[in-house]
């Protein structure tokens, strides 16, 4: 395949960025998107040019490190996959692909396609700990959790914190991320003790980091690689109002 890439290049946080075009031939349809970028970087390194910086780690859709805005969509044209799970067979020979970093005030660009997502870490930290007695391992099933509740908590816990929800939202809102993180603990008995305090603190942290407000466009759900439902946002609103009123 022949592919023309238009990639956002930005030297650092304070520099102006711009799209730079690169021509690639011999792209295999079986390559992952990140392998295609590796190939580009190898070529750039051989020519002694500055390689394109992008985040990646596990490359199997579970770490949440990778995240690129590809042709106007978070994680590219497919639904339910992270950028690393996108393959070149999803594009056509001769395509031009525009690659940009996540754009949001709370996600400043560090270099090229890499953004600083430590705002997410601070939201998690604000949530605090759960109260568990340490000591000997308890017997299995000493705390009964109904199967549907466990399933719902688990689906929320599938959030990998990649930031696609923020990237896709027209308001750069982090509601789906916070909703998933609040729900996974609020649903389980172990998370009940600090339930109210946790939701208030996490929402307060989210607000102070400068994320936008939720307009319920549901773009986040459509772009989430883990397909986390916006019904968790309704749950977050419920949890918040219960804690507040």
């Amino acid at each position: 395949m022949r592919i023309t890439l238009k990639i956002w290049r930005q030297k650092d946080r304070n520099s102006e960025g711009r799209l730079v075009a690169y021509e690639l031939s011999n792209v295999s349809p079986d390559m992952s998107f990140l392998e295609m970028l590796d190939m580009l970087n190898l070529g750039l390194a051989r020519k002694g040019e500055d390689t394109v910086a992008f985040d990646h780690d596990c490359r199997e859709g579970i770490c949440g490190s990778c995240g690129l805005y590809i042709n106007g969509r978070a994680h590219g044209p497919l639904g339910g996959v992270a950028t690393c799970q996108l393959h070149m067979r999803s594009f056509r020979d001769g395509d031009t692909i525009v690659v940009e970093p996540w754009r949001a005030r709370p996600f400043p660009v560090i270099k090229d396609l890499v953004v600083d997502r430590s705002t997410f870490d601070r939201i998690i930290t604000a949530g605090g700990f759960i109260s568990v007695r340490t000591g000997g391992a308890p017997d299995a099933n000493t705390i009964p959790v109904p199967k549907p509740v466990a399933e719902e908590a688990f689906e929320a816990a599938a959030c990998i914190g990649c930031g696609a929800c923020v990237a896709a939202c027209k308001n750069a809102s982090a509601m789906l991320f916070v909703a998933a993180k609040v729900s996974q603990l609020a649903l389980l008995p172990q998370g009940h003790a600090e339930r109210k305090e946790r939701v208030l603190k996490m929402v307060a942290q989210m607000d102070s980091e400068g994320f936008g407000y939720c307009s319920n466009t549901y773009a986040c759900e459509a772009e989430c690689p883990k397909q986390i439902s916006v019904s968790y946002i309704a749950r977050l609103n419920r949890e918040y109002l219960r804690a507040k009123l």
Binding site: N71, G72, R73, E100, A104, P106, N171, S173
Partner: peptide, 14 residues
């Protein structure tokens, strides 16, 4: 909340 907008964005897709 998004001071720099995307060069290419396809909101109608989501």
């Amino acid at each position: 909340c998004r001071p720099e907008s995307y060069v290419m964005s396809r909101p109608s897709q989501n």
